[in-house]
Write a protein that binds this DNA or RNA. Structure first.
Length: 581
RNA sequence: GGUCUCGUAGCUCAGCUGGAUAGAGCACCGGAUUCCUAAUCCGGGGGUCAUGGGUUCGAAUCCCGUCGAGAUCACCA
């Protein structure tokens, strides 16, 4: 039950019947939201101001008609016109009680919606090069993508979580060569790792495994025979490494899509380029060097170009390298056509800030291959600066000079990592201070929220102690007489709970999962605040041994808070412990 | 030089895709603990929303310019 959605519909309907001359487009823009200042009421609409000008009427005249319409509505205790033409509603207590009951009935489903209507969304995230373990730079995108996927799924989309494996480039040849060195090392040779090779220790076990599998039989063989063999082994090993890293944050993809499968005769790149050519989206031409920064080895030559500018990109993009092989972008076009042909009309890609220059061409590619049928939202995750007590922080165990994802999780734990990364907009750079994240105080929003959840459990324990006869089973809580909750403090808490479905929907539409983290924090604050009121005013305590019926009603409220925190933390992928140790 | 982000309290950040007197945490000051977990709560001071224009009933939010920070710039991935 979403009171805002309900009233949004009712207000739109009222406007429709009162002012039929206002078009549907106009009415769709009506906003119903809680006013910033609670003194203004429970919800507020701009309907009158919005419609006034197009209809050539006075806002207050329109507002007056709407006020009249709702004057005798039993769900509304007051409607008034305020400011330049806002209409403020105050809702009747029974409606809030109804919200509370619906949370009890819906439980984990409270906040779920059919916003997405079961439509398929492909969310591609992480897609780190399979050349080593995940480092911190990937962590933010990984958590963001995973949380967004959960949010979209929660909001009624059919979500596919996808990882694009960049396993076709020359870096993979380098990786294979680096691995071969480790193989020779495993056979007893003293090796030296040349610059440009991958120096990380994580290749040592792969070399060892090659030795175990082949003995020294690879040494004498020609490169053309050995390289594909090594490549296959090391790619598989790296992918396992990455999956294991992601699993540490409880991140699991549905599809791992290999770039290599797009290449080759009869592959998707060939067929896609043929298709594009057929549509006239490819031509042979020359590019201007970028202004202000001419690359040293600029080679002015005619090349095969994709008409990206026709789809909003800044320049047309090359598809074939000077050596005749396909560019990365050519493969990416084919990949996104593949996605489209698999049935995805909604695609979201999560990229790091270092790929922000890639956004336009990705969107251009998506439009082109779908003939403008599909939409592509690219979410950029800005960089994370690691700090410890305010000082830049370096920690390297496995991957040369980079802090790995595994390091971070080991240091602060998966819950804190996930929550802290989501407690910030994705498009703003952030500092991640280990000392702060590990601190278990109110400065740390993770523990603040988890403590609120644990506190709900604690209240139930107290109830069991003080009122051992009281039945607090889920059935009993659902049957509680919540209309006994009449104090402002109680109803204010319900108001916060009532905002949950609206918060989820707005976050899903905007693709902004950080709003979930902020909401959960806000709800926790409201709950802690109410709890503390019981200190000054014992009549507001949850557990009152003299009044089992009231206690039961309040426990239903506590349980609703607990449930919504669970739902929110569930989207965030953060655990909700029953007690903090 | 082009493009893309960002600029909000001393610090870290929200601001519900244009709404009413711009919010929270930290820090600072002052309170609350024989009482459901003080891992918490209550109160106070603190702002030219970088800046200058524009759009309109109304702008932190949208558009243009300027300043500043970061990222990126054919044939890497």
């Amino acid at each position: 039950m979403d009171v805002f959605a309900i009233f949004s519909a009712r207000i739109a309907q009222a406007m429709q019947s009162l002012f039929p001359e206002a078009g549907a487009d106009l009415l769709a823009r009506i906003v119903v939201e809680p006013p910033r200042d609670p003194a203004h009421g429970d919800l507020s609409t701009n309907a009158a101001m919005l419609v006034a000008k197009p209809l050539g009427k006075n806002p207050r005249e329109i507002a007056g008609a709407l006020v009249e319409h709702f004057r005798n509505d039993p769900d509304v205790t007051s409607v008034e016109i305020a400011g330049p033409g806002f209409i403020n509603f105050r809702l009747a207590n029974p409606l809030w009680h109804q919200v509370l009951r619906s949370i009890g009935e819906q439980g984990a489903a409270f906040g779920r919606s059919s916003l997405g209507g079961g439509e398929a969304v492909n969310i591609e995230y992480v897609s780190a090069n399979p050349t080593g373990p995940m480092h911190v730079g990937h962590t933010r995108g990984a958590v963001f993508g995973d949380t967004l996927a959960e949010l979209m799924s929660y909001s009624g989309y059919e979500v596919t979580r996808e990882y694009y494996i960049n396993d076709a480039g020359s870096q993979i040849d380098t990786l294979a060569r680096s691995t071969f060195l480790r193989y020779r090392e495993a056979l007893g040779e003293t090796i030296e790792i040349p610059p440009g090779f991958y120096p990380g220790d994580y290749l040592i076990p792969v070399g060892q495994a090659l030795k175990d599998e082949f003995g020294d039989s690879l040494l004498g063989k020609p490169d053309e025979e050995v390289t594909p063999l090594v490549k296959e082994r090391v790619l598989a090993a790296m992918l396992e490494l990455i999956k294991a890293d992601l699993a540490k944050l409880n991140i699991h993809h549905d599809v791992f899509f290999s770039e290599r499968t797009l290449h080759g005769q009869g592959g998707d790149i060939e067929s896609t380029l043929a298709w594009l050519r057929d549509k006239g989206m490819i031509y042979e031409g020359r590019l201007e060097p970028p202004k202000g920064k001419t690359p040293d080895e600029w080679e002015d030559r005619e090349q095969t170009l994709f008409r990206a500018t026709d789809f909003g990109d800044d320049v047309d993009r090359p598809l074939v390298k000077s050596d005749g092989s396909y560019t990365y972008f050519a493969a990416d076009i084919a990949y996104h056509r593949n996605k489209y042909l698999r049935g995805f009309k909604h695609m979201i890609n999560v990229l790091g800030a270092d790929h922000s220059g890639y956004v336009k061409r990705l969107q251009a590619a998506t439009k082109a291959v779908s003939l403008n049928e599909a939409d592509m939202d690219v979410r950029i995750c800005q960089l994370v600066r690691l700090l410890k007590n305010g000082e830049p922080f370096k920690m390297s165990k496995r991957s040369g000079d980079l802090v790995t994802l595994a390091d971070v999780v080991e240091e602060v734990g998966a819950d804190a990592t996930r929550f802290m990364l989501m407690y910030r907009r994705n498009d703003a750079a952030m500092d991640f201070d280990f000392a702060l994240v590990k601190e278990q105080t109110k400065d740390n929003p993770v523990f603040y929220v988890q403590y609120a959840h644990a506190r709900a459990y604690s209240i139930f324990k107290t109830a069991a102690r003080d009122l051992p006869e009281l039945d607090v089973s889920p059935e009993a809580l659902r049957a509680a007489d919540v209309s006994l909750l009449q104090s402002a403090a109680e109803l204010d808490l319900v108001r916060v709970l009532a905002a949950w479905p609206r918060t989820v929907t707005a976050a899903a539409i905007a693709h902004e999962p950080h709003r979930i983290a902020f909401y959960v924090h806000e709800l926790s604050a409201a709950f802690h605040g109410f709890w503390a009121k019981g200190k000054d005013d014992p009549s507001l305590r949850f557990v009152n041994a003299e009044d089992p019926k009231l206690t039961l009603a309040r426990l239903a409220l506590v349980d609703a808070v607990r449930q919504v925190i669970v739902n929110g933390l569930g989207i965030l992928g953060v655990s909700a412990p029953e007690e903090l140790s």
